[in-house]
């Protein structure tokens, strides 16, 4: 991070992400919470952009802000009483405890791991401007098996969903 613009952008986006994530907890209306979550996803996409990870940023918007949010909205719409006052949750304390523990664990890992940091000339040497091509190449080359496994899993899930909701026309 060398230019001031990136630093300002980072803090603004971090504030947006964390602030709207906090709003998700505070909001008493479930749909307001969903909207705040979408805002948080958008902030995360912006953070990816400041790291020059344009493909990941676009995928973040497409998958999380576009698709996952619609899925949540559908779940809320098809659930009776979903838009009722959401103020008192039974699981507030256990949820806080588990979330706090998880955050602590992540922070510990982030501090403990020896991240490979590159600066200046070393960074410029490793730079590639076409992230989409690099990601595509490693998907069909090094991570081909994981890629195939994920797509097979998704296909199975799709067929399973169709089989579950299918009406039995023979009856």
């Amino acid at each position: 991070m060398e230019s001031t613009g990136v630093i300002i952008g980072f803090w603004a986006l971090a504030g947006l992400t964390v602030g709207s994530a906090a709003l998700v907890f505070v909001a008493r209306n479930l749909l307001h919470a969903v909207l705040a979550l979408v805002l948080s996803f958008m902030g995360m996409a912006g953070l990816f952009l400041t790291l020059s990870a344009d493909f990941i940023a676009m995928a973040q918007i497409l998958i999380y802000a576009g698709a996952i949010s619609v899925l949540l909205v559908f779940a809320v719409m098809l659930t009776p009483l979903a838009s009722r006052d959401n103020g008192n949750s039974l699981f507030a304390l256990p949820g806080l405890a588990i979330g706090g523990a998880f955050a602590l664990l992540l922070m510990f890992i982030a501090v403990d791991v020896d991240w490979p940091e590159l600066r200046g000339a070393a960074l410029a040497e490793r730079a590639f401007d076409d992230t989409i091509a690099a990601i595509g190449r490693s998907l069909i080359d090094r991570y081909a098996f994981a890629f195939q496994l994920a797509s097979a899993l998704l296909l199975v899930a799709l067929i399973g969903a169709i089989a579950l909701v299918r009406e039995d026309s023979e009856r």
Binding site: L62, A65, G66, V70, I132, A133
Partner: peptide, 14 residues
């Protein structure tokens, strides 16, 4: 941008 097509799909879903 070199992710232009993906950008279009992402914007369209918003």
């Amino acid at each position: 941008t070199n992710v232009g097509v993906l950008y279009l799909v992402a914007i369209g879903s918003l």
